[in-house]
């Protein structure tokens, strides 16, 4: 019995959410191909409200609106590039999960390659050093045995 108020309190956020007038009507696609294209597109676009979610997953009201907007643009025959451009013009490159190769995103693209090269260098260096000092390694092993 005493749990009832707690349960009711847990449901309160749902009420608050209802005020945001989210359009919950499912989108009706012409064919599965269009639906696949829509899913692909919304999965690589970022929801600006919950920034670690994509537009396909997010339940934020803005994500609903943007999905509707994208759907309408698809119905109007606009290409994926045009739709992305529409969003970039309004929200910036940040909406793209795959950032374009530009001056300020250079580090994103170059850093992994650089790190790989540095890692390979370190491994190569330590291997060649071990080869050069076989006695020291053997000596270490011996001291280990003596104990």
């Amino acid at each position: 019995m005493s749990r009832l108020p707690v349960l009711a309190a847990l449901l309160l956020p749902l009420l608050a959410h209802g005020q945001l007038q989210v359009n919950q009507e499912p989108l009706v696609f012409d064919d599965p191909e269009q639906q696949a294209r829509f899913t692909r597109l919304t999965e690589e676009l970022r929801c600006l409200v919950c920034q670690n979610q994509n537009l396909a997953d997010s339940d934020a009201p803005l994500a609903h609106d943007l999905r509707d907007e994208i759907f309408e643009m698809m119905q109007a025959g606009r290409s994926d590039e045009e739709i992305k451009q529409f969003l970039i013009e309004r929200y910036g490159d940040f909406v793209l999960y795959r950032p374009p190769l530009k001056g300020n995103t250079m580090v994103l693209w170059v850093a992994p390659v650089l790190m790989l090269l540095v890692g390979a260098g370190v491994v190569g260096f330590s291997i060649s050093r071990r080869r050069r000092l076989p006695d020291a390694a053997a000596g270490d092993a011996q001291t280990g045995d003596e104990r």
Binding site: V49, P61, L62, E69, R90, Y91
Partner: peptide
């Protein structure tokens, strides 16, 4: 009312 204009302004908060 429908938030269309706010999308054109890139408003997300």
């Amino acid at each position: 009312y429908d938030g269309r204009v706010s999308i054109n302004f890139g408003v997300y908060a």
